[in-house]
Structures are given as C-alpha cells and as structure tokens.
Amino acid sequence: MRFEGVWFRYARRAPWALRGAEATVEAGRTVVVLGPNGAGKSTLLQLAAGVLRPVRGAVRDRPAVVGWVPERFPAAQPFTAIGYLRAMAQVRGLPPAAADPWVERLGLAPHAGTALTDLSKGTAQKVGLAQALLAPPGLLVLDEPWEGLDAASRTLVPEIVAEVTGGGGAVLVSDHRGEIAGLPDAEHWLLTDGELRQAPEPCPSATAGRAAGEPPRAGERTAGEVAADDVVVEVVVRRHEADAAVVRLRASGHRVLGVRERSATAEEPR
C-alpha cells in the first residue's frame, strides 16, 4: 500500500493535519508510527484504513480486507459484547460464530453477555481488537492498541501482529508509550507537525527498555568510535518518549550511541 503525496485537513480553512506524505507499506511488514500528541498519527492511520479520504494525493493498493482498531472503542451502543461481535461478523459476510474464537482468545468469554456500556476500558478495547480481526486482514491498522490493556493482555498485541504479518498482511501501528519493544522488526515512521519521515533503516527496537549496563547492540557504534571532529551531546528525555527521540535523532543524521537508565549516569553535572 502506498501513500502518494497525501495531504489532509479536517475542514476547508483548518490547518493541514498531514502534508505531502509519501510512504509505502510492504506486505508482511510492520510499521510503527511515532510522534508526539497531535502530530497526526491517528489521521495518518485513518487515511491508511480508508476511514478518511485524502484532500490531495491518494492512498493506492489498499488490501481488500482492512481491520481498524480505533483509539477509543465506541462502547455507547445497545449491544452485549458477543452480540456486537456476532453482528460485526455478519456485516463482514461471515457466519456469526466467526466471532467466538476471538472471544475465547482475547479472554472476553466472562464478559460475553455484558453490555458494551458496562465494560471496562481495557475490555472494550479488546472488543475493538476482536472486531478488526474477524476476517483475516490484509492491512491491520492499530491506533494505540495498548491503551487500557493490562500487563497480561499486552503481549497479545505483538502475537497478533506477528500472525497478521506472517499471513502476508501489513500492520500499521501508532504508539506513544514506548511499547514498541514488543515489535522487533518494525519499520519506524516519524510524524512531526503533519510531516511524515521514514527512519533511514529499521531501528533496533527496545532501546527505551534496555537495562543499565547492557552492552550496545550489534551494529551500534560505541563511544570509543567517536571521530576527532565529533562532539558527544548527552540528552535526557522522558522514558515514554525515548524511542521517538532516538528515531528523530537518527532521522536528522545523528548517531545515537546508547540509551541508559538514569541511575547509571553516575557523573554529576560538572
């Protein structure tokens, strides 16, 4: 699927939310869209899913079956969890029973008969995840899929992503909390103020989560390799922004030497 010079704004006089996005998502690949709040991540994802139409440019070669998990599941509907998923299966042209395996797998069985309005945020998010997977998607678009999920359920997301990409599908996922550690082979796109940039090469992930004292990964140069005309700038960022910062620095042509816990920075300001 390709973004060809995609421009988007929500109203005629509104500022552009996305400016001239050019990018390709290969089948079988995972793309993580990074960026601060309000950078246009959800907009880009909705354009990819076909929820929004580009004002200029086009999104081409979108797979026939798209699964979209919105940032917030619309729980204000007069259905039970199982009733909703069965109805959505029928909307997709599947038998109602197609919903049942996902109810089991996502641990929704104890809440199957609960009204959507009475579900907790995390459980409602799982219903949102299940409806996107009823038909095996050629493109799966996940907007902050970890939001509201408990620790046990968080591992489900990388599992499902691996299954979709393993089946030849593409996955587009946004994240601002540094959960991408679970998606090791993902490509990274960076959105800032509606400008989309691709990280030059797939970044080694899990940088934000790496423990102090762990050796740098293969391919990363160590501090010893700093050339004579280089200077080393130490930067402190918030934990959840670490991945985005690394991607941004690399996208600007800088070399990131390593990421470490604050406790490891023994040196006091000189």
């Binding site: 909705q46 899913a49 076909g50 929820v51 919105p70 619309p74 509907q77 909307v91 997709r92 409806q131």
Partner: peptide, 16 residues
C-alpha cells in the same frame, strides 16, 4: 443512533 466511530468501523468493513 450509532456513534461516529462505529459508522467509520462499518465503512472500513463494507466500504463507503
């Protein structure tokens, strides 16, 4: 009746 996001989900499922 249905929330805007549900309408969009339906659009993704069956087309506009």
């Amino acid at each position: 009746t249905e929330p805007d996001v549900q309408r969009r989900l339906a659009r993704v499922a069956v087309g506009g």
